[in-house]
Design a protein around this nucleic acid. Structure first.
Lengths: 216, 216, 216, 216
DNA sequence: GATGAATGAGGATTCATTCAT
DNA sequence: TATGAATGAATCCTCATTCAT
């Protein structure tokens, strides 16, 4: 269902090229961010990677941060499209193990396919000082996790839910870093470890027992 | 927060002066790394912070990375001196909860007192591409954790132990980031969460139950 | 005895070279400002003209404006040193013609020797929007003229004196522009015209008549 | 004039539209020149201000300078249309005071209504090096003033007349700058001062006396 | 050993101008 | 014509590093 050939005679023919350039630039930026990190990435390097002149880059983005923001936005969008359900509140009937396992699998798959995501989450190298792009991504993701947890921790205060969400995200990012830096069986093993950490962490919080209909 | 009134009345050996300079520079570097992050830190800024000229800095360190390496080394050394026992193999009789709790407390205390440590662990912003300083620190720390875990997982393969160590470090770093970015009660809460994550993660691996001599 | 901080009045040996460089850079800046105007002058061009690298320029000046400011300051200083009397309140006994004639001669001489002065007065091309350097110069000069006029217009309000000062400066600058763009006899003629304009303008304001002790 | 259905190889329609575009662009250019000055004005900014694309601008003007030239031309034209008489040789019977007063009033009014004029006269920031547009404007204006003065200084040499014209223009520009940078009563006061300067300057040159049916 | 000067490549960004559609 | 994309040199400025004193 691509829009390459037939009918689109209407509003902007000009922007077709522009759209393409933007995509191209974002892809190049992703590449460069992954390779050198956000802080060290230079706009000239991005332009070079995209095979265009610096001026062209600035025709579409006012600065480096804007590139990261747009990249993050698109990533979030794509994620939502592809794995929307993974972010939806979980059916309480679903065993925790399964819920987490599938969520981690999905996110890991996405992050493995889009390693920039990690580079952006990682942030601009300044601990505690998150810039726009990063902050935006972070806020969105945390929100999603909070929503998820909300259905698992019905009795917890919002502050607790938020804290738990932050811990989960932190654990996930830590796991992701390990996953991304390994391959094959070892990578799979790290995926499993990440799941285990999360499952065991959340299990008591939810008042459920894995594989046990137990109560407290 | 630099030199206020420093008057050494005694004649020092040249080494002594050099040592003082180095300490001065490292302290300045720590400050700057924390403030701006490693990537964005400039050697000129470090020299300025130390109150010396750029030339002087390069008299003691061949480049920026060397500063980070030396800083990491000293940090490790200091850590070992101060909390050596926390890194020593644990008495199997110690309950896991207690062992982890005390280790996390010690490390968190150290990292809170020396925020550079985190900045260095965080690495030069290049995911997957750890530079010297980082790699060295990392290797040392991982080694320590492996040693620790070794006594807790006597039946595991080295690969498993190593993997578990990496996961623990990752979890710890994630927790540390959260701890450092909060204060007061919230910070304490995050410390506790970090412990919980680790405890619950390691508990089944060790074949023990917290406070329970029971077995699976 | 080593060189621990002794606050003896010789804090700079190093700065000898630096001082020279600064003078060199200011001279180059003067040259470039004259040639291309302040707005169009580039710091790289100034550095090139001075025969140094851009970095060197920025070791001494934080930006282009600072160069202009320092240049203006030095110019004012030099002017005061060389022609201080021309700026001092005039002996009321001095005939207006003579007072103005000598003041214009002195200033014209100075401005002819230091054409940058004009370029700086001319300002950054944006009417009404004077930047630091310009504003500073302007304020100082206006102040001088007001002082001069004060003794010639004892009965005028400060607002009138200020207005008259602005007009005089404007006339002088206009004359200077013409003087600088001509040479030889024509230049001399323009100097004379400038004097004439000012004399005739100020004459009735002072309640005196040139060469006439006569009527009102 | 704005018809559509026509099959001429050279329809006037084009011209009409082109004229409108040009006017649009010139107006935008005027706005931008006034706001940022000629040197700092960017063609992209002009195009944006005019609501067209950069390419369109270059369809009508080969470069930035050409815009300024055309703007100057139109301004001169408009001026001539509106205040033609002010530029015409003066009836020798007219008292100088009145002649100058009315001329200054007219020009000031025009310049106040069209502040670009000043921005253009001010020139491209390069003292002594007037670019095309500026030079053209300047030459035209000087010519007018020479014509004016011709009738007032019948006995002077052309060189003298030219010199006087330049001085008058300089004085006028200086006055204009002051006028434009003030408002209300103060502005009016500066207008009067400008007149006074010119009147007193020209009075003896013309061999007439203000308010006097003078003698030659 | 210490200093401050010097370097020059590189970074982000802008802009007059041209080109393809 | 009009458009918006494209260019690339030029702008200001920074920084790791080296040099002369």
């Amino acid at each position: 269902m691509s829009d390459t050939t037939e009918k689109e005679p209407q509003p902007r023919r000009r922007q077709a090229r522009g759209e393409r350039r933007i995509a191209q630039l974002l892809q190049a930026a992703a590449q460069v961010f992954c390779t050198t990190g956000y802080t060290a990435a230079s706009t000239n390097a991005i332009a070079r990677e995209a095979g265009v002149s610096p001026g062209t880059l600035y025709q579409f983005f006012p600065n480096k941060e804007a590139i990261a923001i747009e990249l993050g936005d698109r990533l979030m969008h794509e994620m939502r499209e592809a794995y929307g359900e993974a972010l939806a509140p979980v059916d309480p009937a679903t065993p925790l193990e399964e819920a987490i396992g599938s969520a981690v699998d999905r996110f890991m798959a996405f992050n493995t396919d889009h390693p920039v995501f990690f580079a952006l989450m990682h942030g601009p190298d300044i601990p505690g000082r998150m810039a726009e792009a990063h902050a935006q991504l972070h806020t969105t993701v945390i929100g999603r996790i909070e929503a998820l947890l909300g259905s698992l921790m019905p009795d917890a205060t919002p502050a607790d839910v938020s804290r738990t969400a932050h811990v989960c995200l932190g654990v996930y990012k830590a796991g992701l870093e390990l996953v991304l830096s390994h391959e094959g069986a070892e990578r799979a093993a790290y995926v499993q470890e990440t799941k285990d950490v999360l499952i065991r962490y959340l299990e008591p919080l939810t008042g459920r027992r894995v594989g046990n209909p137990a109560v407290d």
